[in-house]
Structures are given as C-alpha cells and as structure tokens.
Write a protein that binds this DNA or RNA. Structure first.
Lengths: 252, 252
DNA sequence: AGGTTACTCAATAATTCATTTGAATGTTAT
DNA sequence: ATAACATTCAAATGAATTATTGAGTAACCT
C-alpha cells in the first residue's frame, strides 16, 4: 500500500477512489473509443457494425469495447449470434458532452479543428433534413427549437415548439412524452441541441438532434445523404440487463 | 480486411477532433492529476504546494501540471519566484464533476469503494445547497468553513466563518451554541467536514455538513466572498505541517 | 456433420506514459 | 556576485496501452 504524509496519509481509500475515476477517464482517452461511444449514443449496435462505422478491425473494436465495459461505460446484450453494445446510461452521454464542451471551450488549438469538423459532422448521427420532413408529415416526431426566444420569433422550422436550452430543465412538462424529439439550434457549430439531447435523454425522452440548424434548413432544405445510413433495426429499444459473462482476469 | 477506406472515409478533421478530445480525457486519466485538479479547484496554488499536498515530488508534480496544461485544463500565472496553477475555467470543474457522477453511478466496483469510504457520509445527512441558502436567509444557521485558512482566503461561502478542522478542538469556544452548524470543505470526497461534524457532535453541538463543498457551491452561482489576491504571503506556509522529509512515491 | 458467421482471446511488437534522478533555468535575497 | 530557492528540462527505466495476428468458441444454416 502507499503511504503518504500529511493529511492524506490516513485515507488510502480516497486514493483508490481517484484511481477508479482515473480509470473511467482513461477509457475515454482514445479517439476510437470516443467515436464508438458516440455511435452507441444512438442506440445499441453489434460489434461488427461498430467496427465498420468506426473504421476498425473487428478484433480491435471488440477490445476497445471491452475496455469501455471494464470502465462501466457500456454494457452488452447477447441476442442470437450477436452481441449488442449500448451505453450504460445517460450519465455517460453527459460525460462525453461535458468532455466535448470543455475541450472546445478551452483548447484554442482545437478550435480550428472543431470548425472543420462541425462542417461535416456525422458523429452524433443527426437526423437529416429529409428524414425530419418525412417524419414530420407522418406526425411521428416533435420538433424542438432550443434557441433563445428572440431567434425563434425571427424564424423557425414550421411546426416546431420553442424551449430555450437554458429553460429546458424547468419546462420539461411542456414536452409530451411518446413521440421522438428532434432538437435543433443555430447551426453546425452550435452545441445547444447537443446539450438539449443529453438532458432530454437523461430524463427518459427519446431525443436526437437535427443535422446543422435553422439557417441551413431555411436556405437549402435539400439534405445531403448522411454519412451513415439510418440505424438498423428498431432504434430506441434498450434493454437494461446484461447477462454477466465469464470475465477473466488478465495476468501480466 | 480493414474497413479503413471507402466512401465513409474517416479523413482528417473528424479523427483529429476525436484525438483532441481524447487528449483531454487522457489528462484526466491519472489519479494524481485528478487530485491536483481537486486541489486547484479550491484556488490557485504554486507547484511545491501542490506537490506536497498530493504527495508527489516537485518534479513529478510539475510534469503532471504540464500535462494538464497541454490539455488546456489549467493555466498558470507567474508571480515573483512562483508559478501558480489554476483551473482554466468552470467547464473543467463541470467535467470533473461529470466524471465523478458517471463513475459513481455506473461502476459497481467504484460504488463499493464509495460506500466503504463514505458510509459515514450518508449517516451524516448532508444539507442541500438550497436548504442552506434558505436557512442562511432566515439566519437560523452558522456556516463553518473547515478548510485551511489559505483556501478560505481564496474564496468561501458568503457569511461563513473559518476554523480549520485541525484547530477546531482548541477553538471550539468561537462557535456559538444555539444555532445549528453547517460545515463544509473542499468537496464530496473531502473528509474534513465529516470530521468536523463528528467532533462538534461529540461536544454537544448540532452540526451537519453541506452537500459537496465550496467549488460546487460556487459553480451554482450561489453567493460567495471572493478571495482577494492582495498582499500574498509566502506559499506553502501551513500552520501545522511537519518539515518535509523524504517522499515515497508509490505504484499501485 | 461441415461450413459460416460473430465475436473473443492470447501473444506480439510498437508506442506511449509515469516516475526518478540530476542538471539547467530564472528569480530573489544577502 | 554569490547563494538559495522554485520550477522546469532531459535522460533513463519500467510499466501500461495500442493494433495486429491468428487461434478459439459458440451460434446458426444447410
């Protein structure tokens, strides 16, 4: 055991706790794993699917997924031949969002990269404009504008309701459950819709964000084919149990 | 064999961005760095001070700090002979909090540790920040900051009095009986407030502890007395600290 | 049964990280 | 100027992490 002097000497368990937190953080410390997490944020997926979407070999993806599982960030569900991985809960999504926000806000170096990235981001698998329009016609979706009221008043997507992201917490009752929610904000560089989706999911809503934002909707309306095809199977079907499988300790 | 190409090519910017996020996450992926962050959440500190509090050699602490700095999580300020490190902003605190919440909620293993270590914590039901705020307004409570004087000076809850936990025994007379005492310290994993509450109760005071600590209070925008840079004393002067001797680092 | 699919495991090399040591800055006091 | 101090740097070591390979397991399909 480790010994330390001073006021910390007496609590090694505090150190243990920090070590555990660090382990979780380290699980986030890989670009591939972050990408896998964002893919899983849309719903459960099987290993091969994740591997292909993230551009990894299956074996490598499998190992990354197990790393995440060891850290408690994802769980898995076996069905027939397949193993579906999913996020352990929405706290994970919050954590990833928080990481992104912090990284964006405090890394000048990243700012340039962020711009590039946001121009063509497909990471959170947004709803395309085309898809949203189709689903709006079906009435299977609630469109949520999370920009400030003034901007909403100046123009917004037809049929959208407006709850600024800052008021979302206390106005949650205005959002009817049941239908999936599609949130949007100012545009591709704006994180408000991301935050809204994270919050909504935390409260048990099904929520996704719209690709880009209002200006793009208004100006173009013509969706480019998304980088990723829609989620296979039925999305949003989460089952929470995990048949705890054999776990081997690795000796080294 | 590898799906590393094709129309879904993960070219530069996206990978670069993920890599940047991962770098930030990796900076959090060390128990020592997490501890340093918690210390800095109390206010800026110089390297030697941080090293001693975290039980590291100065050189090692310096390198960890630079790791954090590279990730954009802390900045530094030079003054005279000293280099003071501080958190880049509150987003960092949010990130660390988010990490903690996620780790607690989703790691069975961590839950065990948290439980073991903080079984007492639950026994001493904490006062929520809202409750404290309310009772502060009615004047029915004494707020007691049990952190070292230096941290108190760097910023504290408005209206709080400061008696470091180590001096509590011999300064008990300063605490008026009658009103209930709410003690707080650095944060949720800091035991100083717990100890203070235990001691106070032994002496017949009514005492509870505040949920979390000063950084969380400040983060919510609740009233604080901000520290003044003012005439700065020499850093590293701790009232009752033994002279430094050899330090043992440790591995786990 | 034999073959395929979906995933995991074990062993490897390449890389990165943490820590220690001692020396090199740069600032302040004498 | 010299000494003392605070911090950083540079090199070395061992430990941990990564991607790759190929083998292993279990479910599924004729």
């Amino acid at each position: 055991m480790l010994y330390r002097k001073g006021e910390n000497a007496k609590n090694g368990s505090k150190q243990q706790l920090y070590a555990r937190f660090a382990e979780v953080a380290r699980a986030l410390g890989s670009d591939h794993r972050l990408e896998l997490l964002e893919l899983m944020a849309q719903g459960e997926r099987c290993v091969e699917e994740l591997a292909e979407l993230a551009g990894l070999t299956v074996a490598n993806a499998s190992q990354h997924l197990q790393h995440l599982r060891r850290a408690g960030l994802v769980t898995r569900r076996k069905e027939r031949k397949y193993v579906f991985y999913l996020l352990t809960g929405d706290a994970v999504l919050n954590l990833v969002t928080s990481l992104r926000v912090t990284a964006e806000r405090h890394c000048a170096e990243a700012a340039g990269i962020v711009d590039l990235y946001f121009r063509r981001r497909d990471a959170l698998e947004p709803v395309s404009r085309q898809e949203l329009r189709r689903r709006q016609r079906e009435g299977s979706v609630v469109v949520l504008d999370v920009r400030p009221a003034k901007e909403f008043a100046a123009g917004h997507i037809e049929g959208a309701i407006n709850i600024p992201v800052k008021e979302l917490e206390r106005r949650l009752t205005e959002v009817a459950g049941g239908r999936e929610i599609v949130a949007y904000c100012r545009g591709p560089y704006c994180v408000m819709a991301l935050e809204a989706v994270a919050k909504l999911r935390e409260r048990g809503f099904r929520a996704r964000r719209l690709q880009d934002g209002y200006p793009e909707w208004r100006l173009e309306g013509l969706p480019i084919a998304a980088g990723l095809p829609g989620p296979r199977g039925r999305p949003g079907v989460f089952s929470d149990r995990e048949p705890r499988k054999s776990r081997r300790a690795h000796s080294r």
